[in-house]
């Protein structure tokens, strides 16, 4: 499971090791998470805990706070932590560089599902929907519904097989479940599990490597890892060069015209 090596306090701790922190919170506070203890209260308490544990100066925490890292689509935190762990299994942290969670992939997916892509806003959606066990684009469910359906089923499978929620399962157990989705061994209602898995994988890649304006590829770390320079006006000076050219990536926020 996710270790806490190299984490910046207050930045992605809650997302990277959510259950550790949640358990710790519940144990320490004696509170039951749910109904009464709402998101902001929980978040605030958790942040305070990290602060005290790591003796982090308040100043630094403020610097790294990202107001865009909050959920606008996934209602249940329980679904989101499954998403976090699943994307991290698809694109894990390793020698090559950061993994999906550090790259902001889960929040990227959350934003995508809340927008036009999540509601299939550019697709032909007239019925009838006739394909049995359909791929994503022939499903009567939209992409957002498919994500929730698939993530909950992954969690159910984990509880059924290993008696533990997906996010707390061992990596090998998570991978086993994901492979069974990928090969359509698990049945979902309204969409094929392979279709759901393909969507999850594709969204993970998009979140890792798209322009950071969408909330993924945080700090352009995905591009740095891949040595992709981003939005560069011209390569006329290097197109004929034999040697590999490395440059600091540039995103659209610096490229596009601004007032």
């Amino acid at each position: 499971m996710a270790d806490e090596k190299g984490l910046k306090p207050g930045e992605s701790k809650a997302s990277q090791a959510p259950d550790t922190s949640r358990r710790r919170f519940m144990k320490n506070s004696g509170m039951i998470v749910g109904g009464v203890a709402g998101g902001s209260l929980l978040g605030g308490l958790l942040t305070n805990q990290f602060k005290s544990e790591n003796s982090t100066p308040v100043k630094e925490e403020k610097k790294t706070a990202e107001p865009t890292q909050a959920r606008m689509f996934f209602e249940r935190y329980e679904d989101f932590v499954v998403l976090e762990q699943a994307t991290e299994r698809i694109l894990p942290e390793g020698a090559s560089g950061p993994g999906a969670i550090e790259l902001g992939v889960p929040y990227f997916i959350d934003k995508q599902m809340a927008g036009i892509w999540g509601i299939n806003g550019t697709d032909y959606r007239q019925g009838p929907f006739t394909v049995v066990d359909p791929p994503v684009d022939q499903s009567s469910l939209n992409r957002g519904q498919i994500m929730v359906t698939g993530l909950r089923k992954m969690n159910d499978e984990s509880k059924k097989r290993f008696d533990v929620t997906f996010d707390k399962a061992e990596e090998d157990q998570q991978i086993e479940i994901m492979q069974d989705f990928e090969s359509s061994k698990v049945k979902l209602r309204g969409v094929s599990s392979a279709g759901f898995f393909g969507l999850l994988r594709e969204l993970t890649m998009e979140g890792a490597y798209s322009d950071p304006l969408y909330g993924g590829n945080r700090n352009m770390a995905g591009w740095k890892m891949q040595e992709f320079p981003g939005a560069v006006p011209s390569y006329a000076d290097i197109i004929e060069k034999d040697e590999f050219v490395q440059r600091d990536p540039m995103s659209l926020t610096s490229y596009q015209q601004k007032s």
Binding site: P92, M178, Y209, N217, Q226, F228, F244
Partner: peptide, 27 residues
């Protein structure tokens, strides 16, 4: 960058090995 993740055949399509190889072979 999004589409640029070609890996040699026999490599899984996701996971540790996929990620290391897709980054290694990117260029």
């Amino acid at each position: 960058a999004i589409a640029n993740n070609r890996v040699p055949q026999g490599t899984p399509y996701w996971g540790k090995e996929f990620k290391e190889k897709s980054v290694h072979y990117a260029h």
